[in-house]
């Protein structure tokens, strides 16, 4: 038996010795790879033998996302841990980003920083946990490529907007094309009780939208209702109704128990039809863990 891993997605395979040297295509990610010669396992090393004997673990099947739209072509690679977005613009093409998301770019791309969309919108974005400054990247005389990444380790999701509206959680906004308008939206008590700030970002229009998270992003198509811990929501479509509540079973008489002891706090219950994007980790949990290691102030 030959054991090997896909060099792209690390899926493990086991094939017969007769296939050594042949080409194989990964079932998960499509990567074409040569099958290595049968490896010799040193019998005197019990640790290596033991780890091979353990059941092979299914690895991440996260795929590179890519596509072409009227505005640009994109590729999101290295998902979900260290998502890297490559944007290719035609001459004259433009993309707007949050500050400091740019990793690299070709010399044909010009960067301009400024307040976009007037003071009102800018202020709304600020409330939505985003910077007032928007960076505009323009491929001036020839096509160009720009690479972007989020501030923390994590994933990037893409959504094409064709007139529908998406709500983004604080800090999730990353990139958009000119046809998409991103503003802050007052959510009143709804947002407040969710514990995640008062304002959601609202993205609408026609164009491309990219947003990021700490942790991997899971897409859920809601049909029969769905409950998400408010701290794990990245984005959701406007077609969904949502309300902030406590976990079912703790609704009557158990509210206090749930809030203060149950730790799950308040959750968002979605109903209707539409998509929700959720993240698998929270910066807040990491921060509260690291808080235990803060030094005490010395006098």
């Amino acid at each position: 038996m030959i054991q090997f891993e896909c060099p792209s997605c690390q899926k493990r395979y086991q094939v017969g010795d007769e296939l050594a040297g042949k080409q194989a295509k990964c079932r998960d990610c499509g990567q074409v790879m040569p099958i290595p010669a049968a490896a010799e396992v040193a019998e005197e090393d019990p640790v290596i033998l033991a780890s091979l004997a353990a059941p092979p673990s299914p690895r991440s099947s996260a795929k590179t996302l890519f596509g072409t739209t009227p505005e640009l072509s994109y590729e999101i690679s290295q998902r979900p841990d260290f998502a890297l977005v490559s944007i290719k613009l035609q001459a004259g093409g433009k993309i707007l980003s949050e500050p400091s998301a740019m990793v690299s770019m070709t010399p044909s791309v010009k960067l301009e920083a400024g307040l976009k969309g007037g003071l009102g919108k800018t202020f709304g974005k600020l409330l939505g946990g985003e910077s007032m400054i928007t960076n505009t990247f323009t491929a001036e005389n020839e096509s160009g490529e720009i690479m972007f990444a989020g501030g923390s380790a994590g994933d990037v999701a893409y959504q094409r907007l064709e007139g529908q509206t998406l709500y983004l959680q604080r800090g999730a906004y990353m990139l958009n094309t000119e046809g998409v308008e991103v503003t802050g939206k007052w959510q009143g008590a709804k947002g407040f009780f969710g514990g995640e700030g008062l304002v959601l970002l609202k993205a609408s229009g026609v164009g491309d939208l990219f947003f990021n998270s700490y942790g991997a992003i899971l897409e859920v198509d809601v049909k029969d209702g769905f409950i998400v811990d408010s701290g794990y929501i990245v984005a959701f479509e406007e077609s969904l109704d949502y309300h902030v509540t406590v976990l079912p079973g703790l609704r009557t008489g158990g509210k206090i128990k749930s809030l203060f002891f149950g730790g799950e706090g308040l959750v968002c219950e979605f109903s209707g039809a539409g998509r929700v994007w959720i993240q698998t980790r929270q910066v807040r949990s990491f921060l509260s863990w690291s808080n235990a290691f803060r030094p005490a102030k010395s006098n």
């Binding site: 703790l250 158990g254 799950e264």
Partner: peptide
Amino acid sequence: MIAMSRGFTVET
């Protein structure tokens, strides 16, 4: 808990 369907009761 990150997310869940509606058909659960929760007890602490």
